[in-house]
């Protein structure tokens, strides 16, 4: 059972905006699904998923990069060849 507070906290951690008006709905739905997931907790082993293949590596060789124009072509905002983002400080 998760509370509205849990959902708010996780939504913040995921940085995915949820309106106050949506909290009740998300809480109800997530509760239902997480309750359904609870069956997993009845498993007592913590077995790792076995992966047969390993050491898939590439040689240290330089391949062509995109041009600055191509790199920036989908950016919302740019300045002097940089991507422009909001302040973080």
């Amino acid at each position: 059972m998760v509370t509205a507070e849990d959902v708010r906290k996780v939504a913040k951690l995921a940085d995915v905006g949820i309106d106050d008006s949506e909290i009740a709905e998300f809480t109800r739905q997530c509760s239902g699904v997480l309750e359904y997931f609870e069956i997993l907790d009845t498993l007592d082993q913590n077995q790792q998923l076995y992966r047969e293949r390993y050491n898939i590596l590439r040689e240290d060789e330089v391949t062509p990069s995109l041009s600055q124009e191509e790199s920036l072509q989908n950016a919302g905002q740019t300045e002097k060849g940089f991507f422009k983002a909001p302040r973080v400080m």
Binding site: N74, A75, G76, Q77, F83, K84, A85, P86
Partner: peptide, 10 residues
């Protein structure tokens, strides 16, 4: 929204 997608409100 930095590298692609609609630009962020800076």
């Amino acid at each position: 929204g930095v590298r692609y997608g609609p630009g962020l409100d800076s």
